[in-house]
Design a protein around this nucleic acid. Sequence first.
DNA 1: CGTCTAATTGAAGCATCTCAACATGCGTGG
DNA 2: CCACGCATGTTGAGATGCTTCAATTAGACG
Lengths: 251, 251
Amino acid sequence: VTINHLADPMLRKLRAIAEVSAQDAALVRKLRITPKELQPKEDLVKEGSRPGFSAVLLSGMLYRYQNPGEGKRQILSLHLPGDIPDLQSLYLKTMDHSLGAIDKSVVGIIPHEDLREMFQRSFHLASVMWRDTLIDAAIFRQWISNTGSRSALAAMAHLLCELYLRAQSIGLVEEASMKLPLTQQDFADALGLSNVHVSRTLRRLRNSRMIEWKPGVLTVLDWNGLKEVGDFEPTYLHLANNQAVLVSDGS
Amino acid sequence: VTINHLADPMLRKLRAIAEVSAQDAALVRKLRITPKELQPKEDLVKEGSRPGFSAVLLSGMLYRYQNPGEGKRQILSLHLPGDIPDLQSLYLKTMDHSLGAIDKSVVGIIPHEDLREMFQRSFHLASVMWRDTLIDAAIFRQWISNTGSRSALAAMAHLLCELYLRAQSIGLVEEASMKLPLTQQDFADALGLSNVHVSRTLRRLRNSRMIEWKPGVLTVLDWNGLKEVGDFEPTYLHLANNQAVLVSDGS
DNA sequence: CGTCTAATTGAAGCATCTCAACATGCGTGG
DNA sequence: CCACGCATGTTGAGATGCTTCAATTAGACG
C-alpha cells in the first residue's frame, strides 16, 4: 500500500508557510498516516479527552468549538485541507475544545509517536510545525477582534475574506468561487450572532453585490469592497506567497 | 554583572508548565537578558514591525492589542511576570499586533539569536517553549468564547477568574488579593464592552459580594460563586500544579 | 488647592436577540 | 413520480442588553 500520497496535502501546506528540503519531505512521507472518513457533524476529538494522535485534514472541512454554557456553541476556527488542527494535543494533553467535521470529510490520523520521532530527526520540521501553530494563534487573535470589536457586517465580511484567501492559497478557489458548506447557524456560532441576524447580514452583503452565496458555495464579486467592509488586512495569515494581489477586484 | 537572576522569573514560569532539568536550566541562564523599563501605556513592539528580539516580563503587567478600525482597541491578552508574550516573533516575522505596558514594568530583552541557539542545543527546551505558546493559544480560544458567547457579567467573571488563577500560580496572590492595575477602559477593550457597562458590571459583582475591587487591587471573596457566574473551567490554563483547590471558597 | 484622569450615574438610542410564522429545498419512502 | 418530513433559510415584530452622550463625583498628584 502506497501511503506516500497521503502526506501530500500536508507537504503543500507546510511549503505554503516555509521552505521544506527534499530530505525533510522524505521524513514527512515516512509518517504513518491512516485515512478516516467523518460524516457531517461527527466529532473526531472531544473536549476533555486525551488523544494519542493528531490529524491532517485531507478533504472536506473541520471546525473547532467549545460549549461555553448550556446549549451554547462557540466555533473557534475553521479548517481546510492540509491543516493539522489538533497538533497542540501533542504538547497539551487534555483537549480544551472539540474538533468535528462541518461536511463529509477525510482526515489522516498520525500517531503522536511518529511526530515526536520526526521532530527529533529534524528540528527544522519541528520549527515549521511550530510556526504553523503560531499562525493558528494569529488567526485566533483576529477572531477575538471579530467577535469583540467589529459589527456583525464587518465581522462577517472579515471571516469571508479570511476563508477565501486561505482557500485560494491551497488552490481551492476557481473563478472567484469556493466550496463553503457552512449553515447560517454555523456562521452564527462562529461570529457570536444569532442565525436570524446572520441571514440578514449575508443578505446585506449580497444586496451590495459584494458576494454571492448559496448554501455551500461562496462567490466573491467585489474583493476590494469586501476587504474594506471587513477591515481585512491579510498580514496575520503569514502566507509565504500572499496571493491577495492575484484576486484583483473580480471585475 | 551577574545577569543570572534575570532568568529566574522565566525559569519559574517554565517549571510551572513542564519539567526543566538542571542542565536545561543552565542553558536558560546563559541567555543574554537585558533589562528595560517601560512606562505605563508605553509600547514595546508595534504592529507591523519586525523585531529581532523577544521579551520576558520581569515585573509589572503587559498587554497585547490590535486596532480593528478607527479608534478601536481590542485587547487580546494580559501578561504577568515570567510570560514571554512575543515569543511568536521568532517564527512570525511581522507583528500582527502590538505589545505594551499596562503599568510601569520591567522586561528582559532576549535576542532571537540566543533563543535559536538554545533551541538547537536542547530540543526539550524548545518543546517547553512551544508548549507555552500553545497555552497562549488556548487562552486566546477562551477569550473568543468570552467576547463571542458570554454575557457581560459572565465574561467579566471569567476574565477575573483567569487572572486570579494565573497570578496565584506564580505566587502573586496574597490573602485572596492581587495587584490588577487595569482601568475600566482596559477591561472594556479586553471584553468588547463600553467602559460604562464595565462600571455597572463590576458593581454587580461587588454588590453580590463575589469580589472587592478598587482601582489596582482585586480581592476575590467568593471564588466558587465567581467561577460559576463566569462558567470557568481552569483546564485550558494547563497549569502543571493546578492550585484552584488551594483557593477554596475564600470563606 | 487646582488640575487631570478615572469612575459613576442617568437617560435615550440602537444593534442585535428572541419568538414565531412561513418558505424553500432535499431525501426518502410510498 | 409524488407526498411527506425535516433541516435550513427568510421575514416580521417586539424585547433587551449594551452603547452613547452628558453631567457629576471621586481620587491622585503637583
